[in-house]
């Protein structure tokens, strides 16, 4: 069974999975502790946990899903990038519209 038979999907190693797991654990526990102890002011706390989530998503994509810029995966990346654009429009625009709606409809 050679690596080629798995297409562009996975090229993980024991080391990459362990490293990814440890990073993910740290990136999970820290925001939980921060929120449980209310260590920061509200806005700073929200920004911090959001940043931790983004970093952890990156860790999962790289270490668990093995997304890379190799030529084998080019089309995976193209679809992924397109999805990111759709998500940005969907989430950003909807939230923007609804909050302005709330604001403008206030009595």
């Amino acid at each position: 069974m050679n690596e080629k038979s798995f297409g562009g999907a996975a090229h993980g190693s024991y080391r990459s999975y362990t490293l990814g797991f440890i990073l993910a654990l740290v990136l999970t526990v820290i925001p939980f502790i921060l929120v449980m102890t209310a260590a920061l002011p509200v806005t700073a706390l929200l920004v911090t946990i959001g940043a931790f989530a983004l970093v952890q998503i990156g860790v999962h994509l790289v270490f668990f899903l093995h997304l890379s810029r190799s030529s084998e995966q080019r089309w995976n990346i193209v679809v992924f990038a397109y999805t990111l654009i759709v998500l940005a429009i969907l989430v950003g625009a909807s939230v923007w519209i609804m909050y302005h709606l709330n604001y403008n409809m206030m009595p």
């Binding site: 999970t28 925001p31 939980f32 929120v35 209310a38 509200v42 706390l45 929200l46 946990i49 959001g50 931790f52 989530a53 952890q56 998503i57 999962h60």
Partner: peptide
């Protein structure tokens, strides 16, 4: 789930 626990649970409790 990362998005869920961050933006629903943690952000809800903040």
């Amino acid at each position: 789930w990362i998005c869920l626990f961050t933006f629903v649970y943690l952000a809800g409790v903040v």
